[in-house]
Design a protein around this nucleic acid. Structure first.
Lengths: 215, 215
DNA sequence: TCGCATCCTGACCGTATGGTCAATACGAAG
DNA sequence: CTTCGTATTGACCATACGGTCAGGATGCGA
């Protein structure tokens, strides 16, 4: 019986284990349901069923639907920001932007639900994460724009408006998550294979890097 | 249809005017509300208020919320397909893709709500327009892929996978509608000006056309 | 074993929403 | 004016949903 095994293995801190594990179950289910149905279309009952818990239990860990949604969006935002690291410490656009595209394509593949929730949140006017947009995202964006501008000044790439380059990077990479269903439909109804993901990533990288005159 | 009926239908233009005008009011309001709140978050009451009509009147013209939503999505899809014309009859990628980008950027600017509704529909697995994806969109896509392949064979552009080029075109252009709120936030909270829209269009065109080796 | 904090959950409640309907108003044709 | 199809609308209903709560179960330290 896995339950007792886990209990006997861990002496103390089981309480926090239970909490963490259930929060994980709920957040995973919520991410999927919010992505597939939207905030308004998602129901606590459906999330509960998908998490394998009674609905009242959700309200024990997350007081309201909004609170649960907020946590889902924040989680996504953090994952999204982590891809920033790929951008840093790069000698030039080929390494920096190349690594960034790869990181973001990887996120699109591994967290398609999260990407959709994020997209829907922004499309609806960012009612929950507007402050993040105005603080963290704005700061991040300006930092990267400065890096790109430096590369331009150093003659490592063509004089492109850094802002629109960033938008293009976000748009193209997230498209593979947000519009994954459409892509799948146009791929004979099959999800992209490992090889197709690699080809997609290479296509994006190649077109953009050549497009900014970095190749 | 009997002759007398057709004549009376034609002569009594006022009736069809009322119908058409109210349907227009409702569809415009619905597009906006669906875009801002999602299908699940939208309410018939809110759409009615925004259209300046009593709620029961909506159900007179559109039997159900789903029917109304379906019409909104279909309208968007048609606008979206119309941009296809820009692609046709072009001598090469510079004219064809250039015109396509301009047409799609124009749609993003003029129909931001529609673009969002479309995006949300696809993100949720295209429950309403799956058949369109499998028929019309698939046929359209294959046709343009063939055109792009011909340009490649004629040496007018680099050998890029046409599929991923199309995805990039869709992603980049629609991003300015779907993520318009984020872009506005990063633009000091101001909507893009005429000039900024022109710059955005030029950036997208330049990067992509150079990226595919057409410049 | 006991006491206490944490965790669990069935049953319940108020509200909001999509949809219905019957009564009414309107306007064109005869 | 009368007739008849179209358009309008307030009132109403059944349902589904988010959220509450009381009472019980569970596990841990002492």
């Amino acid at each position: 019986m896995p339950d007792t095994a886990r209990i006997s293995r861990i002496r103390s801190g089981r309480r926090t284990d239970i909490r963490r594990e259930n929060e994980r179950l709920i957040l995973d289910a919520a991410e999927k349901v919010f992505a597939e149905a939207g905030f308004g279309g998602a129901t606590m009952q459906l999330i509960a069923d998908m998490a394998g818990l009674p609905k009242a239990n959700l309200h024990y860990y997350f007081p309201t639907k909004e609170a649960l949604y907020r946590r889902v969006v924040q989680n996504i935002f953090e994952i999204w920001l982590d891809a920033a690291a790929s951008f840093d410490g790069a000698a030039g656009p080929v390494e920096g932007i190349g690594a960034y595209v790869e990181a973001k394509m990887d996120i699109s593949r591994r967290h398609p639900h999260g990407s959709k929730v994020w997209a829907a949140e922004v499309m609806h006017g960012a009612p929950v994460i507007q402050d993040y947009l105005e603080t963290t995202l704005r700061a991040w964006t300006e930092g990267r724009m400065a890096v790109i501008q430096r590369w331009i000044d150093e003659g490592k790439m063509a004089p492109i408006d850094p802002r629109h380059l960033l938008y293009m990077l976000w748009a193209t990479t997230q498209h593979y998550a947000d519009f994954g269903h459409q892509i799948e439909t146009l791929n004979a109804g099959q999800p992209l294979s490992d090889r197709q993901w690699r080809e997609a990533t290479e296509s994006v990288k190649t077109i953009i890097l050549r497009g900014i005159g970095a190749l």
